[in-house]
């Protein structure tokens, strides 16, 4: 009898131990970078719809953070809103409402920055998502991918993107791109190479109707 109880207890323990880490490994961590530089700040209403989509699809236990890309983006101060959704769906729903309000208020008050530090934002995203321990990590870059660093900022740091998916959203064509499309292609190729050399997966979604492709892989 004692033996049976011991076996049953061990089984429960094994299930509990194997079950718990699973929750983390299955959770998604999404870090969205919003480019607020120059005229791109005008595109932020599109970012709102992307965030609404994310709030709709993310489940309890998932993490979502929104940060701005400005002159120096490698800073916690640039995180506009962050949340790890509660395990209870009703609480998670309330958190989503609050999050949406925070983002809306940011978008309505945002001022455009002079420079665009995308690399710093990505570094901050890596740090944040690694800290959260999410199973699937996504860095969404809502930007035209044109990096402009202020004098003195060093961003020649290799990105450690193993286990990360980096998705560029709404990569608009600049006026110069229209004149010479090679510039646009070079920009995209440069970021792809940088992400892939860091061990991450790269994707680009320009048509916001295809947002379901974010988590398709």
């Amino acid at each position: 009898m004692k033996k049976t109880i011991a076996i049953a207890f061990s089984l429960v323990l094994i299930i509990a131990l194997t079950g718990c880490p699973d929750a983390k490994s299955r959770s998604k961590g999404v870090y969205m970078l919003l480019d607020t530089s120059g005229t791109y700040a005008l595109e932020l209403n599109k970012a709102q719809s992307i965030l609404n989509y994310l709030l709709g699809v993310l489940q309890p236990g998932d993490t979502l953070a929104v940060a701005r890309i400005d002159t120096g983006s490698f800073s916690e101060k640039d995180i506009v809103a962050k949340v790890t959704f509660d395990e209870r769906p009703s609480y998670a729903n309330n958190q989503k409402r609050t999050f949406q309000q925070e983002v809306n208020s940011f978008v309505s008050t945002v001022k455009s920055s002079k420079y665009t530090d995308i690399s710093g934002g990505i570094l901050q995203a890596i740090e944040y998502l690694n800290e959260q321990g999410s199973g699937q990590k996504y860095v969404l870059i809502f930007s035209d991918l044109k990096q402009e660093l202020a004098k003195g900022y060093n961003r020649d740091i290799p990105l450690q993107l193993q286990g990360f998916s980096v998705i560029a959203l709404n990569v608009t064509k600049l006026r110069a791109d229209n004149i010479d499309p090679v510039k646009y292609q070079d920009r995209v190729t440069k970021w792809r190479a940088e992400v892939e050399s860091g061990g991450g997966n790269w994707a680009i979604i320009n048509d916001l109707e295809n947002l379901d492709q974010i988590f398709s892989n």
Binding site: D22, R88, P89
Partner: peptide
Amino acid sequence: LPMSEMVGGASYIGP
């Protein structure tokens, strides 16, 4: 669905 309110919607037992 309501059970996820009681035992949490983010924990897993196996798959």
